[in-house]
């Protein structure tokens, strides 16, 4: 019983409750770094870390937080984990820290983190909240990684900084510029929604 609930909690954000293409949440801070696969990977790991641990922390404390100042407490918890990510990156991976610039700090205002806390962690046990937070972060991560994959490949002909496509390839520079991010996300949402709609007709 408990195991099946755990599994359900884990799988929902990866598919039918995906934060990006179903709920359209939290694209603000991370879409900006999807022009490189490596940056996206680091950034989404940061988001996963933050969502999972802040959901867990809030769930542990949920019975002692007065509901009037709930938002403030939530923000403090999230900001604490984001500061950990920021300091760790600055210490161990300074070039990446420089490239990501303000976007690491902006994880605080990413709607997914706050959204999962409000919608899930406030009513559920710590372990379940941890899993939910982690899975939401992963559901978010794989969508952005797919987008980053196409943007870097089409825009520069390389992946993870290594040249993949030969000299015959003409770079689509628009893909690594801002409009490319909007178009890729739109195309992705379009494809997934068509698939969901089709599935709905069969049932």
């Amino acid at each position: 019983m408990a195991a099946s609930k755990l599994k359900k909690t884990f799988l929902a954000p990866l598919g039918k409750d995906n934060p990006v293409f179903v709920q359209i949440l939290g694209i603000c801070s991370t879409l900006a770094v999807t022009n490189k696969l490596e940056n996206t990977m680091v950034m989404t790991l940061g988001v996963m870390f933050t969502t999972a641990l802040s959901s867990w922390t809030l769930s542990v404390m949920r019975k002692w937080i007065p509901s009037r100042i709930r938002m403030m407490v939530e923000t403090m918890i999230i900001a604490t984990y984001v500061i950990i990510v920021d300091i760790a990156l600055k210490a161990y991976y300074p070039e990446m820290w420089k490239q990501l610039g303000p976007y690491v700090g902006l994880i605080i205002t990413n709607c997914i983190v706050m959204g999962r806390i409000e919608a899930f962690a406030l009513q559920n046990k710590p372990m379940l909240s941890l899993v939910d937070g982690l899975a939401s972060g992963m559901g978010y991560a794989y969508v952005l990684l797919i987008i980053a994959f196409f943007r870097e490949l089409l825009g520069t002909g390389s992946l993870w900084g290594y040249q993949i496509l030969g000299s015959w390839w003409t770079n689509w520079s628009i893909m690594i510029m801002p409009p490319g991010g909007f178009f890729m996300l739109a195309i992705f949402i379009w494809i997934v929604r068509e698939a969901i709609l089709k599935e709905g007709h069969h049932e």
Partner: peptide
């Protein structure tokens, strides 16, 4: 149908 709402806004 699949592009309605957020999809078309992003385009």
């Amino acid at each position: 149908a699949g592009l309605e709402g957020p999809g078309i806004s992003l385009v």
